[in-house]
């Protein structure tokens, strides 16, 4: 009991430190308001352009892989919102490699706050809120257009989808950062799974090869970000023919991923502290 109390206290301590640093960066960002607005709009436009590309595709077709525009928009909105939230809150951990290289990680290690919290919060970029906001707008539009018989349970499913999706992407960001303890120049690799994952999840699973969908379900469980819950919401079968209850496993998968990411991060940091590189 004492240990769990201590853990709760240290979590509270970490969250507090995160909020402190974030608040300071937000304040400093807002002193250059014009620059902030341009960047936030640019950020929203960046992910918005991907949706424009989808719209352009649908100017030539009615369905892609058997999915209509509102359904693809639902997939797009859910995935981009989840990625946007994770990127906003934790995206800065991808700078870990350069911190190891230039030695500024040492500076974080002499401060009385968890290193992970400091890496994630440092240079917090509020402008990144553009992407999740834009994605939420698309998601909102899609939810009004798809044929769904809304029940409280389905509303919970949507909310759980977004939160566990963000957690899964956050775990991947963290795993990528932990990998940079070993390979400092490999920041790009995680992009394959975060931005690349997002680029994949925007489209229906029917578009991709069975092996890819299987890999995205069992190896790197991106399918739980939006595919499985959204297919359930839309009343469609998933292409792998998994049992129905799997569609609800998103939060469980997210928790397992976060646990694994935490272990990887700790191992990476322990390695750093024993080798200094």
């Amino acid at each position: 009991m004492a240990e769990s109390f201590g853990r709760a206290a240290s979590v509270r301590h970490g969250v507090r430190a995160y909020l402190l640093i974030v608040a300071m960066w937000v304040r400093s960002t807002l002193t250059y308001r014009a620059s902030f607005v341009i960047m936030a709009v640019g950020n929203a436009a960046g992910s918005g352009l991907e949706f424009v590309a989808i719209l352009l595709m649908f100017s030539h077709i009615d369905a892609l892989g058997g999915f209509g525009l509102p359904e693809v928009a639902l997939l797009y909105g859910a995935s981009a919102t989840a990625l946007g939230l994770a990127d906003l809150l934790l995206g800065n951990v991808e700078r870990l490699g350069s911190r190891v290289r230039d030695g500024t990680l040492d500076v974080l290690l002499v401060r009385p706050a968890p290193v992970y919290v400091q890496v994630a919060a440092d240079r917090f970029a509020l402008r990144r809120i553009g992407r999740p906001l834009q994605a939420l707008a698309v998601l909102g539009w899609a939810l009004t257009r798809v044929q769904v018989d809304w029940t409280p349970g389905r509303v919970v499913l949507v909310v759980a989808m977004l939160l566990s999706g963000a957690a899964i992407f956050g775990a991947i960001f963290t795993l990528g950062a932990a990998f940079q303890f070993v390979a400092q120049d490999a920041a790009q690799v995680q992009n394959s799974f975060t931005y690349g994952g997002n680029a994949m999840l925007q489209y229906p699973p029917t578009v991709f090869s069975r092996e890819l969908v299987r890999g995205a379900t069992f190896v790197i469980p991106l399918a739980f970000v939006n595919w499985l819950p959204a297919l359930r919401l839309l009343g469609r079968d998933d292409p792998l023919g998994l049992p129905g209850w799997v569609d609800f496993l998103g939060p469980v998968v997210a928790a397992v991923m976060c646990g694994g990411a935490a272990l990887a991060w700790r191992a990476g940091l322990r390695g750093y502290r024993s080798t200094g590189s």
Partner: peptide, 27 residues
């Protein structure tokens, strides 16, 4: 303890000195 690295700063690069100190106070 307090630590000063001559080669790299422990302050927040883009923040004014006063804000860095305020953050140190809270942290």
């Amino acid at each position: 303890m307090g630590v000063v690295f001559g080669q790299r700063t422990t302050l927040w690069w883009d923040l004014p000195l006063r804000d860095s100190y305020e953050l140190v106070r809270r942290m």
